[in-house]
Simulated scan of single mutants.
Amino acid sequence: MFNFLLPLLFLLPCAAQAGGTGYQLENVTLETLREASLPPAPAVTVPFRADGRAGGKYFNSYILKAIAYLYSNYGLKGYDINSILTHDITYHTFGTIPARHAPLTMCVAAQMEIILTAFELYAKETGDYTVYDYLPKRSFEGLEITALKGHIWVNHDFKADGTADALINFGMGERRAFEDLSPGDFVNINRTTRTGHAVTFLGYINSTGKIQPAYNSTVVGFKYFSSQGRAAAGEGGFDYRYAVFSKFGCPAMPYKRDCEVIYSADQRMLNTGTMLSPGYWTGVMPQASDETSGETVLNRTFFNGITTDD
């Protein structure tokens, strides 16, 4: 039972206080669970039922642990479109992936940092460090078609319209329709304002912001985690938002909103998918060609970081 409850601990508000001391995963005990207090939002709400993807084939549980860790230790440090990673990240024995303008970061870099942090937590918890052998460190630094970063940064020529596509293109992900998402899946959105965002899905919401256990007729959007907002500490950076589809207007929510999001079954407009656990990675890798010889150029106007209540 404790092993079942452990991943849920990191979804609770007590595990996600920006600037506070984060839980040490190896020190969490059943007593820790009993004593945990519940401060108010913003934080990830525990789903009404556990999802089978939390273990086994899917990597969702480690993505969620990474979010809890990053918000607790690096939350709300500031947003900047030219910044990458809130801190330097050690890529096992292969060197360091350096941050640029830390602790500021932006949305596509936030998704890459979540993945890298999930790698670290997974390796420490399981002792399986072969997770770092699948992609070279360069894959998180370069912007060419053979680099995962070049796909996470979004490049239509690479057939990469979001983080989900990036993972699929490298044999690390699987397509999920929006209606089938689970907490810890990835979404890239487009807005009616011709801007967009890269985020991690945390749950469906109704018109009052209440988390729904699954997609249903009351769903107006979803709760997510990413980096957005302003440059000043406390006003931007790693944080939560309530995304609302444009057809539902912009109702009041428990925390900051991201309205005018376009709902579409077209993956170019609403890009959705999940990350596979390392044992299920297929080894598929994009290959360079004359048509895809360039590098991804980040669309800074599109990814401007501003949401409705910023």
Rank of each mutant, 00 (worst) to 15 (best):
S139V: 08
E144I: 13
T90N: 11
Y132K: 09
T86K: 07
P136F: 00
L135S: 01
D157V: 13
I152P: 04
D157Q: 14
V108N: 12
V108A: 11
L104S: 03
H156M: 13
E125I: 01
T93D: 14
A123M: 08
L104P: 00
L143W: 15
L135N: 02
A99G: 14
I89H: 07
V154N: 09
T90L: 10
G142C: 12
I152Q: 03
G150F: 03
P103Y: 10
G127R: 08
T130I: 09
A110W: 00
H92D: 14
L85V: 01
A102I: 07
H101E: 13
H151T: 01
T86H: 11
D157S: 15
S139K: 03
Y122H: 03
D128Y: 08
Y134D: 05
A102E: 12
K137W: 03
A123V: 11
A99Q: 09
H92I: 02
S139M: 04
T146M: 10
E141G: 04
A123N: 07
T90D: 06
P98W: 00
D133L: 08
F158I: 06
T93F: 01
Y132H: 11
I145P: 03
I115Q: 10
F94H: 07
I115R: 01
I115K: 04
L143R: 13
L121G: 06
A99V: 05
V131E: 11
N155A: 03
C107L: 04
K124T: 15
E125W: 06
K124P: 05
H101T: 10
L104C: 02
Y132F: 15
T146R: 08
I97D: 01
A99R: 04
L148Y: 00
A123Q: 12
T93L: 09
T90W: 04
I114C: 05
M112N: 13
M112Y: 02
L121N: 03
T96Q: 00
S139T: 02
L121M: 11
E141I: 06
I145T: 02
A118C: 10
I152C: 04
Y134G: 00
V108G: 05
H156V: 14
I89Y: 09
Y132C: 08
L135F: 01
D128E: 13
F119N: 01
R100C: 07
L85T: 00
F158K: 05
T126H: 09
A99C: 10
A147H: 15
A118M: 09
E144A: 15
I145Y: 02
T105H: 03
E120C: 01
